[in-house]
Amino acid sequence: MFDEIKDYFRGKSVELTPEIEKIIDDSLERRSIKKGDVLLRQGENCHHTFFVAKGLLRAYTIDEHGKEHLLQFAPENWLISDRSSVLFDGISEQFIDAVEDSEVILIETGFFEKLSEISPGFQRFNMYALNNHIRHLHKRINLLISASAEVRYMDFIKLYPDILLRVPQWMIASYLGITPESLSRVRKELARKNFKPG
């Protein structure tokens, strides 16, 4: 039922004992959603972390002029959530919706803590995942305040190798904090340097 997330945990060296498997089977929920379906809205309380078994989700905010700002993409095997809402019981500032038809596994608040208490392997994984997330956020902040459009783009394609083919250009520009025209310039310049017609 939850094969994708079990494989994901195993891939992170978490040993899945029968007890852990039972907790997974009993407490997770699977949902098929369509492109455009919204899992979280600004102003709501977020009660779940979402694991993407198939498809693609994104998290974004909308400013007072109605403009979208993309915070994160979550393709297969990614976790996505609004931690400030889940863990600090706050009202969410984000939207999370489906960019493609997706299969999502819903993880309730408390799941990670519960497994961390009974499994040292899971606790190690959870700490690593959290620190890795912080590392990425720091890198992202630094790139947004200091790096050129090209440097941001090069970092983006390393993190998300196949997203360029899956979403419209404006979404990538929004994630990078640049205009679509400037993304287009970066890609044109890369092609000028690297394209050698056969």
């Binding site: 394609i157 190798p161 196949d162 360029l164 083919l165 250009q169 287009s184 890609r187 044109k188 310049e189 890369l190 092609a191 000028r192 340097k193 690297n194 394209f195 050698k196 017609p197």
Partner: peptide, 18 residues
């Protein structure tokens, strides 16, 4: 396949306006 994605992302397929 990963190489193909990387080549596409880095402009090795060229550029074309939509």
């Amino acid at each position: 396949i990963l190489e193909a994605f990387n080549d596409y992302n880095t402009g090795k397929f060229g550029y074309l306006e939509d």
